[in-house]
């Protein structure tokens, strides 16, 4: 069973092909070019280089969030189109779960994947890798960094691009409780997205391409402002 997986949730783009658990190939770009311009050419190159034609793909997968709203929709719309054309199922994967799975040498350790959500907030969740699947302990969500720090009670490994902005602050607030992964912050890789999608598919089945959509974990700014106005409106 072959899985084609993609990630366009952040600045990098990644596409991979798996045969069950085995990675056949992965293309990852950090070129700064627009995902809309590079995604399908990358998929085309990947299928050509691995000599796996699209008709042999049984499952199409992508990250469904959190991440850049537009990037998530480019991924979701593309996977939807591929799956509808080929008559095959889809599977969405949490961006944060894919990041947690990437920190593979951490079996049994708490992992907190972190993405910059702008407006002074971070997307985060808490995971523990067990038997090759990241077990979700605190659901993916969005908050300021202080609220996140308040939830950390034991030694936790922080990973992800959110560290660029928040690494220093986390170390300052949490001290020894925080382990920050060495080196440049880990980005989402389709090698993990495809693996996770395949394992989730075996456990939970597929999703319908027609209803498939990102899970943003945050309202649009207009909806947030409207909700805030409703909440703060004084009573007559």
């Amino acid at each position: 069973m072959k899985t084609l997986s993609i990630d366009t949730s952040g600045r990098t783009l990644s596409a991979a092909l798996h045969d069950e658990d085995r990675l056949l190939g992965e293309i990852t770009l950090a070129s700064g070019r627009h995902h809309s311009e590079t995604l399908l050419p990358a998929v085309e190159a990947l299928t050509a280089l691995t000599r796996v034609p699209l008709r042999e793909v049984d499952l199409f997968a992508c990250t469904v969030g959190p991440g850049s709203f537009t990037g998530l929709r480019i991924g979701a719309a593309t996977v939807k189109g591929l799956a509808m054309a080929m008559g095959k199922p889809v599977r969405g994967v949490s961006t944060l779960a894919a990041l947690a799975l990437g920190a593979a040498a951490t079996e049994g350790l708490l992992v907190c994947p972190l993405l910059d959500a702008r407006r002074g907030q971070v997307y985060w969740g808490l995971y523990m890798n067990e038997g090759g699947r990241p077990k979700n302990l605190v659901p993916d969500g969005v908050s300021d960094i202080e609220a996140l720090a308040g939830c950390i009670e034991e030694k936790t490994l922080f990973v992800g691009e959110g560290l660029e902005t928040y690494g220093t602050i986390i170390r300052r607030i949490l001290g020894d409780l925080a382990r920050i992964e060495e080196g440049p912050p880990r980005t989402v890789r389709a090698a993990q997205v495809g693996l996770l999608a395949y394992r989730d598919y075996l456990e939970e089945g597929a999703e319908d391409p027609l209803t498939f959509a990102p899970r943003y974990r945050r309202l649009s700014e207009a909806e947030e402002k409207k909700a805030a106005r409703t909440l703060t409106r004084p009573r007559a």
């Binding site: 809309s36 995604l39 699209l54 537009t70 480019i74 719309a77 593309t78 939807k80 189109g81 591929l82």
Partner: peptide
Amino acid sequence: LVGSLLVGLSMAKALAYAL
């Protein structure tokens, strides 16, 4: 609207490529 256009465009490209 670019964000709106990209939904239709990504879908159209994926369909054309796969078909």
